[in-house]
Amino acid sequence: MLRLAVTGAGGFLGWHVRVLLRALGWPEPIVLTRGDLADPRLVAAKLTGGVDRVLHLAGVNRGEPADVAAGNVQLAVQLAEGLKQCPDPPVRVVYANSVQAGNGTPYGDAKATAARLLAGAGVDLDDVLLPNLYGEHGRPYYNSAVATFCRVLAEGGRPEVHADRELRLVHVTDAAARLIGVPTGGSWDPAMPALRIGVRALADRLTAMAATYRTGEIPSLPDRQDIRLFNTYRSHCFPAHYPLALPRRADARGELVETVKAHGGAGQTFCSTTRPGITRGEHYHLAKVERFVVLRGSAEISLRRVDDAEVLRFPVSGDEPVLVDMPTMWVHKLVNTGADELVTMFWTNELFDPNRPDTWPEPVEAARSASLAVSA
């Protein structure tokens, strides 16, 4: 277990790094803000004693080419100067570089220059060339085409493809695992397996997922990349698309409720009873798709995004069954708010594996700082 410091902790990659650290049970990282980086003495003070590794994630990805280039170089200069003034520096700097480094563009050449500057800071450098990253809560029109397409689809639009080319996409949790330096787990792979797909094919795949999911049906999820693309899309649907009413059919015999229609892939269904006032949950998942449907009684489903403070609440009842799908990286719980026993159906997209449960305990009502949370 290492003690880390992180630049760019409030960005897309930074948030996912902090979520994975939370799941691993590692200490909260020391955060170096851009204001901190402007003062080499402050950087040295924060890094002196007890910090094993610095993850340099801060960067400038969008803007005027000259500003993008200058910004990436400046951030590296500032961190390198702070490291040089550190009497007891970290053992290693891990740099979130880009596969575009040195490709002749202002951005690519600036990323390559930043790597050389960090290599000259007197600390071992792990220069990680990252491809296009995608994942939950990426910023549309900024982080990736995946985020843009997902947001457009979630808002009822259709993605526009202006130029088709092959993309090499890596899920951001895999990138976080590579940067942190942890072995393969149930929900991450530091080898960063990539999805190679054309822009048009990506738009078509996400469009098909969205069309199937619009009524609550689960699209075919044959592999981990499909699951992660689906989770990314769902992150842009939450919370506006929930709860979703379920079809009900009644006759003289009673009622029938269609709770899950899955078009392909694994899955497991189970039911529970919960006594009045009792809580279930208080955890989050990194990759698992999980559905709650209350069939009898009344309850409240509460959710909070990891490292955020706001708690969202959904009152639900078996009198009018609805589905609420738990977004990945959101802590959630279910509380029986009625006077009678609660009956709930749960569905997940994978068979439960006690050795890799993808269930990370954390209270929903925990007081967390929202200052570093990524905006959706």
Rank of each mutant, 00 (worst) to 15 (best):
K84V: 07
Q85L: 14
P87R: 05
D88K: 06
D88T: 11
P89Y: 04
P90I: 05
V91F: 08
V91M: 09
V91P: 01
R92L: 12
R92E: 15
R92W: 03
V93H: 14
V93K: 13
Y95S: 11
Y95I: 01
A96P: 13
A96V: 03
A96C: 10
N97R: 13
S98E: 06
S98C: 09
S98A: 12
S98N: 13
V99F: 08
Q100S: 15
G102F: 07
N103C: 07
N103T: 09
G104F: 03
G104A: 07
T105K: 13
T105R: 14
P106K: 02
Y107W: 14
Y107L: 08
Y107S: 13
D109W: 07
D109R: 09
D109G: 04
A110F: 01
A110R: 11
A112K: 14
R116M: 12
L117W: 11
L117T: 12
L118G: 04
A119T: 07
A119W: 04
A119G: 04
G122F: 11
V123H: 10
D124W: 10
V128P: 15
V128A: 15
L130P: 12
P131Q: 15
Y134M: 04
G135I: 03
G135E: 05
G135W: 05
E136T: 12
E136F: 01
E136Q: 05
H137P: 00
H137A: 09
G138E: 10
G138C: 05
R139P: 01
R139S: 11
P140V: 00
P140F: 00
P140N: 05
P140I: 10
P140G: 03
Y141D: 14
N143K: 00
S144F: 02
S144Q: 01
V146S: 03
V146T: 11
T148S: 05
F149S: 00
F149Y: 12
C150N: 07
C150M: 07
R151A: 11
L153W: 02
L153R: 11
A154N: 01
A154H: 10
E155Q: 13
E155W: 01
G157L: 10
G157N: 08
V161G: 06
H162P: 00
A163P: 01
D164I: 03
D164K: 05
R165F: 09
L167V: 04
L167G: 00
V172I: 08
V172S: 01
T173Q: 07
T173K: 00
D174P: 01
A175Y: 02
A176W: 07
A176T: 13
A177N: 11
